[in-house]
Design a protein around this nucleic acid. Sequence first.
DNA 1: CTCAGTGTTCAGTG
DNA 2: TCACTGAACACTGA
Length: 278
Amino acid sequence: MPELPAVEHGRRLAESVSLNQVIERVSCRRDDIVFEGVSPARIRRALTGKRVLAVHRKGKHIWFELDQPPHPLFHFGMTGSFYTPRSEALKFMPHPGPKDMNWPPRFAKIHLFFSNGNELVMTNKRRLGRIRLRRDPENEPPLNQLGFDPLLNLQAPKEFVHALQARNAVIKPLLMNQSFIAGIGNWIADEVLYQSKIKPTRRAGSLSEAEARLLRNKIKHVIQTAVKADGRKDHFPRTWLYHRRWNKNSHSQTINGKPIKHITLAGRTTAWVPDVQR
DNA sequence: CTCAGTGTTCAGTG
DNA sequence: TCACTGAACACTGA
């Protein structure tokens, strides 16, 4: 599910059920991939009886600030999500068991029970997500390796222009480089380049100041708009490439009738519009 | 049966 | 150090 807007949606959901609550019970099974070697016993010991003081996000990472370390960090990978018993999205979650048994959802990796009766589950279908424990999350990997978060700390235009001009990298992979900017993934990179009229194979250092400024503003615009849509992608503006990028047949086109081309960059499918992007 | 996918990391190369 | 590529991870759904 997750680039920055979807992760922020998850953060808000988690905050809404857990803020100032005590974690009364933790249910999880051993999973040495998702829990990165942390045993169920250690997770339970770290979380049970602790109070949630805040739920933070940087880039695509979420972490709970507890009243006592270590603090849990969550990364969704490509297929992770938070759910509560009242999540709308649960209706679309298939479950192999009898009907009306969609709680906890399929692929649940950790299930938290709070003192106010609320519950929160993190699912992870493909197991590319991670749940970690850190004593000082912001000053340890992976959080301290992240670049600036474009929702919380977007660079000033001048700084951003200079940061781009200092790089020889291809612009699209650079936008997805989490140590440069934290939170942009495949579809947002394509969207902001399309809206900025910049060809995804351009070198960052080749952008004019005007292009770099426009790109910065589109990053801000796309992310803020997607965050406001709060998980409802059908609320994204109809002009966005997003709605049409997945159709990979040779006739796919934008809302204005411009052909959409698909190439591979940095191992990822890249949708772009040659008539618009230079 | 094959393959791509809203992600990340690591090894190998230049 | 920087930059790029490909493979690996893991598994569902088209």
